[in-house]
Design a binder for these strands. Structure first.
Lengths: 194, 194, 194, 194
DNA sequence: GATGAATGAGGTTTCATTCAT
DNA sequence: CATGAATGAAACCTCATTCAT
């Protein structure tokens, strides 16, 4: 399988660095190749075209992120606790990976509609994790029975995403991870019964 | 001033139509000129460059939107009521202007980092409206005194934005305006004291 | 109309020179532009793409050639005389235009299948001229009534084409025009009744 | 010698198939290697470069064709009869080998000037066969003493070639072999004394 | 002998912007 | 003011060939 080949991840990692440091529109294939330490043509032994690099990048990174979250919140704890874990994991991952933070919050959003549709497919996996937590919370009575799952999901994802984007746009000047707890409180209030 | 000249708005309106119908990356200056009924070169008598069209577009449209909101919520009612008015106004405006909905939620996000920083400057006016409501709510005791204004703003804007984006991506299949009330309830729960 | 614009023919003439002197595969658009004395981009104001230059080149040159032949053989003379006129015109034109001779006999044949199909469409006009002469000859009794028109056309065109190609490949060392009469004699023998 | 190695012919045969089915410009070395069941690099153990494959292809196939013709017309019969035999052999061979017909009449003509000059060297062997028949015909009085051998050869080869090309371009819809006799009649008329 | 992963040069086309009219 | 013809820089991808195994 492709992914076992070292150059596959080597190129993806190079793409993250190049996009983060040069911006989406200045991330030429030749720059990525140079950063990865391979010839331009080698890129095309592992990826169909430039767009394929970006989709794969997102799939690989987001895929492993979703897996990590799923493992982390498996079984243990209430829905409220799981939501906190998820937010902490989300903030923690992007705090620790400066390049990925820039790429996911700013650069990859400049891609064209086709690419963004593909990215949304990957994101669905994440949104399903949120849905699962919300549903569980409704069942256990932690969240209001009237809660609309789609709206709750949009609030949770929208708030988290907006928080991270603000943090990145403010040049990561403050501690993102410290916001996990207050953001969590805001969100469970929103989901709670009154 | 530029804005008094009829061609200025003519070009901006043309840009909205062209971007909405062709997508950001297919919105060439020549297409906008054609749609506006002017020569390519005429564009440059009213705008410094292509980016200037897009910034002006956002400034004009967003500016009038913020004005409208400000008028609408001036003086009357509690913070909770003002928040509802604001959400309704936001959803209503985009419901009524299909082209602008596509342009603001999908197409303009594909612009480069520089342009998006400029757009964020314009957005600040809107975020200040939100801040004002949140602060008022804290003073009147409608919202928790512990509420972090920045986080609350991010939740409110993030939720609204994510809700609209989902609606646009789902091809505006359902009634966005009907979501104003449940979204509002979610948000005031989040902001409320417990 | 395009063709009235001077740059249209300017670019086509440049293409003939560049292809003849550099070969089909070394005839880059930038070389043609330079030879024509225009910018690369200007080419695309007059032609859809590179292939369109080549098709247009063939259409313009061959079109005017067929017109000339048609005028030349209109009405006057027997089929046998018309055939001679045609051969002389064919040999004469290529004798006088060294570049076109190379382009039509050697270089343009390297084009891909699509382009050659388009070229064949243009050639059909020429083949129809041959057919008309053959038919007339059969009617007047100059040629055998048993003569298969398609085969006769293939013999006439094949012989002429092969003669010119040989001449070009031999670096135009001998007088092509002098061959018109003996080639003509060969062909009318072939077509004649015995 | 190279040619005794089984892989040599294996690669040549693969090249014929790949070129016929994909076209000259889509006949990549890697495709030929795959069709031949060898690795890309192996090609270069038997051929100097890609052009060498094509020249060898033509030499091998044309060489055996010329041999066959020579054997077939050796000694027996008049020049007129030999010419018929030759045309029949030519039409017959290409009728029976669909791939070679496409390759020789359409695809190989797209090669560059250098390659076609090399191909012409090979063709000379065939043209000499024609010359021999024409000379013999002149000596026996079957053909006119005034007949220019070069022109006669160009007529014979040009007519045969044009006939086959037309047949291939018309997707081999009709019986090529049936044309041998009428084409032969045309040609001996052309060569005959009047 | 055989392999096939890696190489890297090279060209068509788009489109924001200018400036002579 | 308005025009629109002309400009020219810039990048993705292919594929013949090599060479370490």
């Amino acid at each position: 399988m492709k992914k076992s080949k070292p150059k596959y991840m080597q190129i993806i990692d190079a793409a993250v660095v190049v996009i983060a440091e040069n911006g989406y529109h200045q991330a030429q294939v030749s720059k990525i190749a140079k950063q990865a330490g391979v010839a331009d043509g080698t890129i095309y032994l592992y990826f169909k075209n430039k767009e394929d690099i970006l989709i794969s990048l997102f799939e690989e990174k987001m895929g492993s992120f979703i897996e990590k979250i799923n493992t982390m919140i498996a079984g243990k704890g209430t829905a409220v606790e799981k939501l906190l874990k998820m937010i902490e994991a989300h903030f923690s991952m992007l705090s620790e990976d400066h390049h990925m933070a820039i790429v996911t919050q700013l650069e990859l959003r400049q891609s064209n509609k086709d690419l963004r549709l593909r990215i949304n497919d990957v994101l669905k996996g994440y949104l399903q994790v949120i849905d699962k937590i919300v549903l569980e919370g409704k069942e256990t009575g932690e969240f209001s029975v009237d809660l609309d799952v789609r709206l709750a999901r949009q609030m949770i994802f929208g708030t988290i995403d907006e928080t991270v984007t603000s943090w990145v746009m403010n040049e990561e000047k403050y501690d993102l991870l410290a916001l996990a707890s207050p953001v969590h409180r805001l969100l469970i209030n929103g989901c709670g019964s009154r």
